[in-house]
């Protein structure tokens, strides 16, 4: 991809991502805020694509847009007065100070980190190396198996909690 197309795409994605992120916290209507969050997820996937991480981008859409956002929307369905949003509580000053401090810490961290650029060319085919790493022989076979067991126990736990006596 030529340099100029790359830059234009990146700044477009970045601008939409920032706007969408602001929308999530500014919008009153909880449903619109959730849609804004989904837009944010999609632009982040676009930025992954620009970084040649195509598998990560697709999985971002599949998991975050296709699954997590559905969870959020179902939660909104169970909320009353979703359109008015929640009025600010008594602790808004405390919350504001904590949020500002958090922004400060993150900004300080980003500014003071030296980011290294990799000079190795991106992989043409990303799926096979990833699969070999996850399930191959020296790889992360054990951890991915443990993750599967963890998920299974979470499902069983959820069933045990909601089961009628």
């Amino acid at each position: 991809m030529p340099e100029i197309t790359y830059s234009i795409t990146f700044y477009l994605m970045a601008a939409i991502a920032v706007a969408a992120a602001l929308g999530v916290i500014i919008l009153r209507d909880v449903f619109r805020a959730a849609l804004s969050l989904i837009l944010l997820f999609m632009t982040v996937a676009g930025i992954y694509l620009l970084l040649h991480a195509d598998f990560l981008a697709i999985v971002q859409i599949l998991i975050y847009v296709g699954a997590i956002s559905v969870l959020i929307i179902v939660a909104i369905m169970l909320t009353r007065d979703a359109r008015q949003g929640q009025p600010l509580g008594k602790i808004k000053w405390v919350a504001g100070i904590v949020a500002l401090a958090l922004i400060g810490v993150i900004a300080w961290g980003v500014i003071n980190t030296a980011f290294y650029l990799s000079s190795t060319p991106p992989l043409e085919e990303t799926v096979k190396p990833l699969g070999n790493l996850l399930f191959g022989n020296p790889g992360y076979m054990l951890t991915s198996e443990i993750a599967a067991v963890l998920l299974l126990s979470a499902i069983l736990g959820a069933i045990a909690v909601i089961r009628e006596k």
């Binding site: 697709i58 999985v59 859409i61 296709g66 559905v70 929307i73």
Partner: peptide, 21 residues
């Protein structure tokens, strides 16, 4: 795409959100 088949699954799950919108 070398992830073509998952791309289809991921993108077509977007239309569910649109229906919900």
């Amino acid at each position: 795409l070398n992830v073509g088949a998952i791309y289809i699954i991921a993108i077509s799950s977007l239309s569910m959100l649109a229906i919900f919108m």
